[in-house]
Design a binder for these strands. Structure first.
Length: 754
DNA sequence: GGGGGCTATGGGGGG
DNA sequence: CATAGCCCCC
């Protein structure tokens, strides 16, 4: 350990310092936004190291790879290069790393594949098909969500079928067989040597719980100090796994959790604030510290945040305060359409840059959904303001990348059926849908992988030739994998698979971009191979292809280094958690968007949207601007939304007084339906002579039983009833007697007549 | 049996 | 508006 040129402890306030130096026993830190949470975490780790603990005995679980990287850099400044060997990373990435060493003990190959969401859905699709279920009722996304929730709550397929609550819920949604799909899905993944994202947590739990060869004790002994960041966003499964690592006879229970119940925004992923309460029960001797001083934002912003969050019912009592100046009041931009919103926000960015001398990198635009980025992009480009969009399609989600990666996956793990299906006929080699389905069903019937079927079963003369050719190609990759490093292998694959050639043949700009992307992937692999830094407590670095594949499957867009530094940041509010900017624009503040229409039915979900809004506004250091558009092109048509309820909650005193919010609904100027009209007309002719150009849908929540409404296709009708899931039953005049239509209001295009 | 074009349908946040 | 599945032609 190197001697310090300064004392890091002097940079902390009293409570922060206590949180840093109380390293023995369970500790809970409740940290408001901007309260120096990261500083506490990093200095705490540095402090532990300075007390003589080897870095690799410290496990720091963060929410993003980025947070982990930042943390390591900051620890390094205090303790030197040993910081790199702290086990710091996301739950998913660190558990994957451990499973790469231990998975064979629980029936998986150490080279297991990680299935992304698309892979999971595809597996589920196949199962739904094989069970002859209606894929509209058994929507694969919904089924996947149920399975994911079950795993996050440590519910096995067997426990699922015996859980009356889950089964009743599925019956209610007319999907009583989800438990069967779950069971088959789990079996299929295991057979494919594949884990989905939830499995990285679940199989880690199983590993510790079943404890083959004393593996649990091994990790209990190794991780003497455990820290968990963003604890409010952990789910039951994560909590249980941490507990297995911490709780054992004679354990010092050196566990420190850091979080803020007010910033819990991932319940859709199974996160539960209950974990904070549970922690207090499970560790009654816990030392709790509350960080309430905000060092980030000016007074008006902090006040607004406090005002907003008081609208939520359940919360841990705390009052965030700042000793900064009151600063500028919060500004509000009202726009008529989303295009105008894009323009006016961009105008404001230009103006603020000049007035306050802001750099691009000090500005962020935050939105609820990634699809909102487009209008801001367009206007920023027009003004020559460089920007970078985080989220949305990550580099590794691009088709050309996934194709090449699929070859690599299959090379490493030939049981990976999803990878095989992706590339068996890409580039074209005359193995069509029918043949693939045949291979797949033989594989299912014999509990084999598709690769095994290809290599062991004789096919008809027509398919045979192509299949032999394909098997030969992949086999050559597998052979090369013995001698080549990951980079050489990837280059070999891109050439011999025919992908490189195929892409080069396309000389359109998009085609050229695809070639560049593939080259970028190869460069990335080279960098991965050449970089020999030791991280996360490793003694040797693993440069295999399978190690690379695992790294990238856990990488999100936000984790990629950006070469351009002085750019405006565009991202979702979720992605902005933990970040801060001098100037922040929170856009699209409308009912049905923020809060999301998906959340309107449930008060709990509205509260979560509110916490999300709280996270959004507390990203701002000095200048906070909110915006909304009165109309927005959504779901294929122009919708009119009221300003978000959250705008009413920030406190009038905190808002720039020159501007006041007015509700837009009553006789709002009729928008011009431009290109839209022709398109609608050229589609199937609307029934019953309704002119689409004069049609304007009313917001879903304004429709009530008894009303007369117009539907573009069905014409005029009367709303009979609306149930709790916002499904309306409507009698349309044009349809035969007593024929009732059931329509989901959230998708419906209905205009109120009276 | 494979490949291409067309239609219908669904659309949140992320590791 | 994008994608998946379906139908039709080769």
């Amino acid at each position: 350990m190197q001697e310090l040129g300064f004392s890091y402890l002097e940079e902390l306030n009293d409570i922060q310092r206590q949180a840093v130096t109380s390293i023995d026993g369970p500790v809970m830190v409740i940290a408001g936004p901007g309260s120096g949470k990261t500083r506490v975490l990093t200095y705490r780790i540095a402090h532990i190291i300075n007390k003589g603990v080897p870095p690799w005995e410290i496990l720091a679980l963060t929410f993003t790879n980025k947070a982990a990287r930042e943390m390591k850099e900051r620890i390094e400044k205090v303790v030197g290069s040993g910081a790199q060997r702290v086990w710091a990373g996301t739950f998913h990435s660190l558990f994957a790393k451990i499973l790469r060493r231990e998975a064979h003990r629980i029936g998986y190959p150490n080279d297991f594949t990680i299935y992304d969401t698309d892979d999971s859905k595809s597996v589920i699709n196949d199962i739904i098909k094989s069970l002859n279920l209606d894929k509209k009722v058994y929507n694969n996304g919904a089924v996947r969500a149920r399975i994911s929730a079950a795993k996050s709550n440590l519910i096995t397929p067997k426990a699922y079928v015996n859980n009356e609550e889950l089964m009743a819920y599925d019956r209610m949604n007319r999907r009583p067989l989800i438990y069967q799909i779950y069971e088959k899905y789990a079996a299929k993944c295991l057979r494919a040597g594949a884990m989905d994202f939830d499995d990285l947590l679940l199989q880690m739990f199983r590993l510790l719980y079943q404890n083959p060869d004393g593996v649990r004790e091994k990790y209990q002994r190794q991780f003497k100090y455990i820290l968990v960041d963003e604890f409010q966003d952990t789910n039951h499964l994560q909590y249980s796994t941490i507990k297995l690592l911490v709780d054992y006879p004679e354990s010092p229970q050196n566990i420190c959790i850091v979080g803020d119940d007010a910033q819990s925004i991932y319940s859709f992923r199974g996160a539960t604030i209950e974990n904070i309460l549970m922690f207090q029960t499970d560790y009654p001797q816990v030392n709790t510290f509350k960080l309430e001083q905000n060092y980030r934002s000016t007074q008006f912003i902090v006040d607004a945040a406090n005002e907003v969050i008081t609208n939520n019912k359940r919360q841990i009592q705390k009052k965030i305060w700042t000793d900064k100046d009151e600063g500028d009041k919060i500004k509000l931009i009202k726009a008529v359409t989303e295009t105008e919103e894009g323009k006016r926000v961009s105008d404001s960015i230009v103006e603020n840059k000049n007035r306050y001398n802001l750099r691009n990198s000090e500005i962020a635009i935050l939105y609820r959904t990634n699809s909102q980025s487009r209008v801001f992009e367009e206007h920023l480009r027009r003004y020559n303001i460089p920007y970078r969009i985080y989220g949305g399609l990550s580099f590794y989600q691009r088709k050309e990348i996934k194709d090449l990666v699929a070859y690599m996956r299959l090379t490493v793990n030939d049981k990976d059926d999803e990878a095989l299906k992706r590339i068996i006929n890409y580039p074209r080699r005359s193995i069509g849908k029918t043949t693939v389905e045949k291979i797949s069903s033989i594989a299912d019937d014999n509990e084999m992988s598709m690769w095994e079927v290809l290599t062991k079963i004789d096919f008809g003369p027509r398919a045979k030739k192509s299949i032999i050719e394909f098997v030969k190609t992949v086999q050559s990759f597998k052979n090369k994998a013995q001698t080549l490093n990951a980079y050489e292998l990837a280059t070999f694959i891109s050439r011999k698979s025919g992908i490189a050639e195929l892409l080069k043949a396309d000389t359109s700009p998009e085609g050229e971009a695809r070639v560049e992307n593939v080259n970028a992937l190869l460069d990335g692999i080279k960098e991965f191979v050449d970089n020999d830094e030791l991280v996360d407590g490793d003694d040797i670095t693993d440069k295999s292809m399978s190690s690379f594949l695992q790294t990238i499957s856990l990488m999100t867009d936000a984790d990629q280094d950006s070469t351009d530094t002085d750019v405006v940041t565009l991202m979702s509010v979720h992605a902005a958690k933990g970040l801060e900017y001098r100037s922040v624009y929170v856009v699209g503040l409308e009912e049905n968007l923020f809060p999301s229409y998906m959340s309107l039915a449930s008060p709990d979900q509205i509260d979560e949207e509110r916490r999300l809004f709280y996270v959004a506004i507390t990203r701002a250091e000095e200048y906070l601007t909110l915006s909304f558009a009165a109309s927005r092109y959504q779901y294929g048509q122009t919708r009119y939304n009221d300003p978000s309820r959250f705008l009413d909650e920030i406190g009038e005193g905190n808002l720039d007084s020159l501007i006041s919010i007015q509700k837009s609904k009553p006789d709002f100027p009729q928008p011009k339906v431009l290109g839209n009209f022709k398109k609608l007309g050229s589609r199937k002719t609307p029934a019953l002579g309704i002119d689409p150009s004069s049609f304007s849908a009313s917001p879903a929540h304004s429709i009530k039983p008894g009303m007369t409404v117009i539907h573009l296709k069905f014409g005029q009708g009367k709303v009979n009833s609306i149930d709790e899931r916002m499904v309306a039953s409507i009698y349309f005049d044009g349809l035969s007697e007593n024929q009732e239509k059931r329509i989901m209001l959230k998708y419906a295009k209905l205009q109120i007549v009276e």
